[in-house]
Write a protein that binds this DNA or RNA. Structure first.
Lengths: 128, 128
DNA sequence: GGGAGTCATTGACAAGCATCGATGAGGGTG
DNA sequence: CACCCTCATCGATGCTTGTCAATGACTCCC
């Protein structure tokens, strides 16, 4: 790719654009860095699954702690899968758990959920 | 799957209750139907990928239409992958495209994006 | 028509994710 | 102690998603 003749330059002006070059803006990197973008998508992914959504919803409706055996009854998957999704929610910080005897009780971590909500809300504001 | 005799049901129930008072709450279906949950997660999934997030962000920043070759420069994946993600955004209704000569220009469909935003915002409100 | 460029699609492959049976850890009960 | 219960983890399996080289459809310019 060498030089353009001056007539080619002229063509480009009248035509707006010549083939073989970059179309419009040179400077089109996203204002979102790859790191920022991944941070946002990680937040979205946590609840981008129906079971996790439903689990969190149940935990929220019952203000207190809920036993796993009850959560199990609230969603259409088997126990190991429930455990799996609860683990993801826990690793995301949105819920906590306590063992009590034979049972495990899960509960919403309000502050963390609130932080999650405002991060997502902030992300939404990008798209106004 | 077979039936349990009613005495077996009785035994089972009383045994579970005997194990604790909190467990096995009756009223525990999610207020979110499986269908509602699925609808929400589909909305979340669209933008739960860094490349799609960045593409949409670029399209929004340039108010008008953007040529694919420019979008290509804005994200860290190759052309077929860009095409792939643009297709997903298009199928979700968030962007549209027009062919113009050799070039394809993409643009944000404002109304659809706005509808998307309010659906997600409504979903967020579940988790207040 | 020939050549070069843009973009979509195809096809192959890999990586990630969801699911569940089996098993294990650990506590309660008789 | 022997047994049963709850829940976590492991391991195998199938499905979905992301990625890119290759190809194809189409357009423009000479």
């Amino acid at each position: 790719m060498g030089f353009m003749s001056s007539s080619a330059v002229q063509d480009r002006t009248s035509r707006q654009r010549a083939r073989g070059e970059r179309c419009c803006d040179r400077d089109l990197r996203s204002s979102l860095s790859a790191a920022e973008a991944r941070a946002i998508t990680r937040d979205l992914e946590v609840l981008a699954h129906p079971v996790r959504l439903q689990l969190l919803e149940v935990l929220l409706r019952k203000q207190g702690r809920v036993c796993v055996c009850d959560l199990e009854a609230a969603v259409p998957v088997k126990q190991p899968t429930v455990s799996h999704h609860l683990k993801l929610l826990r690793e995301a910080g949105l819920v906590g758990s306590e063992r009590e005897g034979v049972w495990a009780f899960y509960f919403v971590r309000r502050e963390a959920l609130e932080a999650w909500r405002s991060r997502v809300a902030a992300a939404l504001r990008w798209f106004e």
